[in-house]
């Protein structure tokens, strides 16, 4: 039975492998080049010195100049990230959805379900082989992208905890890929034609991904609140902390948000432009900076939760798919 599953789908597995090899051919050189530039700009040492605390002394060097330079050189690479976000969906569409749907659409289930192997066994092996290939592929690409993105995350602007960047590295892509494949398989047992199954997979995948990302992920654990003064600031936020900042702004003494999405810090005895420290835009004494965030130290915990949810949903879908195959009548 494993022989059959492999023989039937080896072409798709081969295409997957070729796709991953092409990606690697693109990512390994650029990843190495990024690392080279990163070190050349002195960012390695500079970022290392910043540590991972959320706040650092105001006088500390935030590596701003070098990191701006790095980002202006490699920022365009983040566009490739869109591709990484889509990869799990592609696996669901072209690997999961046809698995059962094509058999039934072409009537070959009548041949294979009447051999001396039960349908439950057939489904289990076939889904197992598909799942194993998806697991290996997503493991390679999830960890590969993590490696590739590290310099960009460390350079501050595209922290690994941020939306989209969180979704394309670590273990999350494994969860997404397994889920997409399971959803495709399940959709194929409900709509036993390839195109409707693919459509259902597309809709279902986007629905759960968007819903969880926007509604659930910020609340996996209670967010932390950080406040710090505007005037006579002795501390500043650490760009290397890797925190996921959910919202921030300036609040007045009563706690009312007066300017959202803004942060001001004035050094003691500042002179020159800006010395008024926001007085011209209505900042008065008693106002303070406020931010709601998930600390960067929770990154792997959140990765685990995100992956776990998608794996659990995938397991449920596969169970339902096997049941549907066994009871199809």
């Amino acid at each position: 039975m494993i022989w059959l599953a492999w023989r039937q789908h080896r072409k798709q597995a081969l295409f997957t492998a070729i796709g991953l090899a092409l990606l690697a051919a693109l990512m390994v050189p650029t990843g190495l080049a990024m690392r080279h530039t990163f070190a050349g700009l002195g960012l390695d040492d500079c970022v290392g010195a910043l540590g991972t605390a959320s706040m650092i002394p105001a006088a500390a060097d935030t590596c701003g100049k070098a990191s701006t330079q790095f980002n202006s050189q490699y920022g365009v690479m983040t566009l490739i990230g869109v591709l990484f976000l889509v990869l799990p969906l592609l696996a669901g569409l072209f690997w999961g959805a046809p698995l059962v749907a094509r058999e039934i659409e072409q009537g070959t289930h009548r041949m294979v379900w009447t051999q001396g192997v039960s349908r439950g066994h057939w489904a289990l092996v076939k889904f197992g082989v598909a799942g194993a290939v998806a697991l290996v592929a997503s493991l390679v690409y999830g960890l590969g992208v993590s490696w590739w993105l590290t310099p960009m995350s460390q350079a501050g602007q595209h922290g690994r905890f941020n939306l989209f960047f969180f979704d394309m590295q670590g273990t999350a892509p494994i969860g997404y890929t397994i889920f997409a494949v399971a959803l495709g398989i399940f959709a194929g047992t409900v709509w036993p034609k390839v195109l409707p199954a693919m459509s259902a997979t597309l809709v279902g995948f986007l629905a759960l991904r968007i819903a969880l990302t926007t509604l659930a992920r910020p609340h996996y654990l209670p967010a932390h609140v950080l406040t710090f003064p505007i005037e006579d600031a002795t501390e500043q936020t650490n760009p290397a902390a890797g925190d996921w900042i959910l919202s921030y702004g300036i609040r007045d003494a009563t706690g009312k948000m007066i300017t959202a999405n803004a942060q001001i810090a004035c050094a003691p005895d500042a002179t020159g432009p800006g010395a008024a420290c926001g007085a011209d835009i209505g900042i008065t004494s008693g106002n303070y900076n406020w931010q709601l965030y998930q600390p960067g130290s929770r990154y792997w915990l959140f990765q685990g939760i995100e992956t776990g949810i998608f794996i659990a949903v995938a397991a449920l879908l596969l169970y339902l798919a096997i049941r549907r195959v066994r009871r199809a009548a």
Partner: peptide, 21 residues
């Protein structure tokens, strides 16, 4: 119905002779 023991005694050629092409 889904009895492997019977299925191994029965040969079946479905309509339009579906085979993996």
């Amino acid at each position: 119905y889904d009895d492997v023991a019977v299925l191994s005694e029965v040969g079946f050629v479905a309509q339009d002779t579906p085979l993996y092409r």
